[in-house]
């Protein structure tokens, strides 16, 4: 049923990376308890990582049989990792770093404004409105209804919340 798919740029390299990872993990599994016993904590990880090593070797051999265009970085950045994907990964990374210190509300709002502006390209007012709306819904669902305590950071949320509660109650 499946016809032969030509190789993607970087596929062979990725295969070797996975093999390297498997070998590293096999060594780590061996470090847990060596070949001491069938029931040792390391036995199962060793068996599984051995399967990883073997199957990644087989995959590499299979991949060699498939046709490939000559590798060019240009193709890689067109088909596999276009700039927008790389930038997005970077932005989420920054989000996670700032979350604890700056707090959820500010980082999430900034995240939504930046990414929606970047991807949707609407007017600034529209972007801000949509971001605020999305944030309010997520905040209500997680923080208020299901009492997940999100990182506070710079905005003293719990003080504000208890002030509101006092006003109501």
């Amino acid at each position: 049923m499946s016809e032969v798919v030509p190789k993607q740029p970087g596929e062979t390299l990725f295969g070797f990376l996975m093999l390297a990872l498997s070998l590293f993990l096999f060594w780590q599994s061996y470090e847990i308890a060596g070949f001491s016993a069938l029931s040792s904590p390391g036995a199962f990880p060793m068996a599984v990582s051995a399967i990883m090593v073997i199957s990644s070797c087989v995959a590499i051999v299979h991949d060699f049989k498939r046709p490939a265009d000559s590798f060019e970085w240009q193709h890689f950045f067109e088909r596999i990792l276009p700039p927008v994907v790389g930038v997005m990964i970077g932005i989420i990374f920054v989000f996670a770093v700032m979350l604890e210190t700056v707090g959820f509300l500010l980082t999430a709002f900034a995240f939504l404004v930046v990414t929606i502006k970047m991807l949707h390209k609407g007017t600034m007012a529209y972007t801000t409105l949509i971001s605020a709306l999305g944030l309010v819904v997520i905040y209500l669902v997680f923080r208020v209804i299901f009492v997940v305590v999100l990182p506070e950071g710079l905005i003293p949320e719990s003080d504000i919340m208890s002030a509101i509660k006092e006003m109501i109650g």
Binding site: V144, I145, E166
Partner: peptide, 9 residues
């Protein structure tokens, strides 16, 4: 209770 948790402060 679900919205604000009921105890008075």
């Amino acid at each position: 209770a679900l919205a604000f948790a009921a105890a008075p402060a």
